[in-house]
Amino acid sequence: MKIKEVPQDAALLDQHREVTYAVDEQGRYVLAPSAGWDPANLANLQAWQLIAAQMREALKQVQSGQASPLLFHMQHHQMDVALLASYVGLYRWQVRRHLRPGPWKRLPEALRGRYAQLFGLAPEALDDLPKEILLPVALADEEGRT
């Protein structure tokens, strides 16, 4: 890659610049800043699309009473049951139980507190879910191009 070819496709990094290796006119390697590259940006957005879809599905399940709000928080923080369990120091079956609306309502204060602390929320705020999915990246519509 020549210095002139170092991509500057800003999309995800805001002010951040990564450095990449490129060759100058004498053929010597130098470090050159890059604002991002479309193929890499696309792959990154694809990962976010998956997260968004999982969050949307979780929101639907919570609203229809099939799952507890914990499912939404878990998806929001890109976790699965195993990862969430290791963060709060519980067994997986316990977390799986807490994903059901009934057991979640009866959850002891202390356990609620552990989840709240992990997600950086007040314990009572765990039940408030957003109306819309907010992501740190802008996704085009499902059918639109990104």
Binding site: Y21, Y29, W37, A43, N44, Q46
Partner: peptide, 27 residues
């Protein structure tokens, strides 16, 4: 397509210096 996107990420996303570390190794 998901698998392909994943491959691109591993190869090109921040931290590889581009081209799956080939350029940094050439340097």
């Amino acid at each position: 397509v998901l698998h392909l996107g994943h491959l691109i990420r591993m190869q090109e996303e921040i931290g590889t210096g581009g081209g799956g570390f080939r350029f940094i190794y050439a340097a």
